[in-house]
Design a protein around this nucleic acid. Structure first.
Lengths: 346, 346
DNA sequence: ATGAAAGCGCTAACAC
DNA sequence: GTGTTAGCGCTTTCAT
């Protein structure tokens, strides 16, 4: 019952009447062992609930079976959800997660990178911060470049000119889903709020927005694009500016993320604008926020479980076999709730 | 510039003309080394940006400088905030965090416990799940009991009858802050929604609620206490039941947490009840949710930074020196926002 | 103060 | 198939 500790493969080997190497072989399953010995050893492993010392194993075979996760901020439900899915996927394959929050601090980002490297993780996965930049910070590229020669580096963003693996959300498709949904509802005055063009995904969505406006023959209006960050307050400010700056109000708004949408909700509320009655609102990320506000938000989802396990699977197969597809795209998904309605034609 | 890898203390020792033991001594600072040699070694460490192999070090000195964090669900902002603070505190002391989500799954909870033990973390900190039970699950007590004989176990809850360290929020004081704030506003009909009595902190708050009702000479009404979980939907359901079951509506509601309060907000909205105009609402945890809903929620905060670093400091001093205070209480704090108003006396 | 040497517990050649 | 042995890179007695 009580797992005796400080037991080693030598103890097991001794009691089973075999050599330590044989015990190691049944542990790693990397070589064939006769049934008789294997069964004897397995029985003792059971009996003592023996768990091989991971540090010793790592020291010997140069693999830690640990994955470093660098994440912008786990307090953001988007990252939290993704991290949980990564953890599940890693568990399933016997890997451990080392979590580091970057907290929007470049010093910390550098330090975390070095730390994970010093911990000899088998691969590093980064989501957010400097991997989200439209044009990569050369200093960070250098740092990651050096490390990625030693261990695989996977990101949900990208880093120009180095050997890293990118698993991106298909932002153009995400925007298309949102946009066409609104168009199908008859909207023609469609605004875009939040985000920054120096952020790659914001930029890509903005490009796609321009393109879609164009092919749908909708008139582009400068003031319909309100840049401004990623927070609730940013969303609020953006909608405020939009409402004050335009004579022809939009009938629909595409928010950068659920945070921004929540801020927009508040601004609309203060202006006595009903959503979706007077204004349709759609957002990205489909975090739990979109479920809990009133009205519930129609939002773009990414299938977090598939996203997380794709990241981890890639990291692990890179660590173990050295190859994996260099880049690929996660397909987004439209989740319809209550924040959009048909446009009211004047 | 480029950190050469696979460099060991032997390389440093060789180049510095000293023995590996001396290099180890300057690394650990656990023994005196002559200034001359120390400086020479430090220079080489700088030069090569040498980082000692953590696995080798752990194997040798039996310390991993890693802390295992078991958390109910990182997607919950309460836990996310706490985890980030733990991480900061751990970083500051050179420790690494191994994160495990329990996800309300006893199998997973058991597995995570074993996993962290197998990883030889120097201490385990658990927040949530079975450490939150009013009466501890004997099976889990046994499991943790076995492990806590080997490594320190710290929790934000408790576990009956075993050698573990508890750092709890002062729930009675938290409830008192909320309650007296409402009383000072003239409220006499005060309801309590969400939570479950099998949850220890819910139970403690409920006890305190009864006590405070009593000493304030407020009449207790059965239907003013609506138990019902911890989610947004639970909060919604609780307020619904309350509104339907009582002829004399309360003028104030104390919600189990921000989630429940958000649900209550929705229920109130649907009933055309204005908050705080018709009904005051106060909640616990002071997560970012209380900032982003309308109206902003008055909520009880716990000083997460102090909470997180207290947990980690305790874990580390337990791991390093073997002693720390067995139990202590985190003082709560009232954060006033817009969801409460003076009672309207009929 | 410092060096030599013996582990820490495992894996991976290498022989047989 | 299986055992022997040499590391993996560090810390820590134990001498000196």
């Amino acid at each position: 019952m009580a797992s005796v500790d400080n037991i080693t493969i030598y103890d097991i080997a001794h009691e089973a009447g075999v050599s330590p190497a044989t015990v190691s072989r049944v542990l790693t399953k990397k070589a064939r062992v006769s049934d008789r010995k294997r069964i004897a050893v397995e029985a003792l492993i059971q009996k003592y609930k023996f768990q091989p010392n991971v540090q010793a194993r790592s020291l010997s075979d140069m693999h830690t079976r640990a994955l470093g996760l660098m994440v912008a901020d786990i307090c953001n439900p988007y990252y939290a959800t993704l991290v949980v899915e990564c953890e599940k996927a890693a568990n399933k394959r016997g890997y451990t997660i080392l979590l580091c929050n970057i907290l929007n601090n470049k010093e910390l980002e550098n330090a975390n990178l070095e730390k994970l490297y010093a911990q000899r993780v088998d691969a590093i996965i980064q989501m957010g911060c400097r991997t989200d930049d439209l044009v990569s910070d050369p200093d960070y590229v250098t740092r990651v470049g050096r490390i990625s020669q030693k261990i695989p580096f996977i990101t949900t963003g990208k880093l120009d000119g180095i050997n890293c693996y990118c698993l991106n959300i298909n932002q153009a498709e995400a925007m298309r889903l949102a946009f066409e949904y609104l168009v199908a509802y008859g909207h023609r005055e469609i605004a875009l709020i939040g985000g920054e063009k120096r952020d790659r995904s914001s930029y890509q969505r903005w490009q796609q927005y321009l393109y879609l406006m164009d092919i749908n023959h909708l008139p582009f209006r400068e003031e319909y694009v309100q840049e401004g960050g990623f927070s609730v307050d940013d969303g609020y400010d953006c909608l405020q500016r939009l409402l004050h700056s335009s004579r022809l109000l939009p009938t629909a708004v595409i928010a950068r993320n659920d945070y921004c949408a929540v801020g927009a909700l508040r601004a609309a509320h203060e202006h006595g604008i009903s959503i979706p009655g007077d204004l349709s609102l759609i957002s990205f990320d489909n975090t739990f926020l979109s479920e809990i506000v009133t009205p519930r938000l129609t939002s773009i989802d990414y299938n977090y479980a598939a996203f997380g396990s794709a990241l981890v699977d890639r990291a692990i197969s890179l660590a173990e076999t050295g190859n994996a597809p260099k880049n690929s795209l996660i397909p987004p998904l439209l989740i319809v709730r209550d924040s959009c309605a048909p446009a009211i034609r004047a």
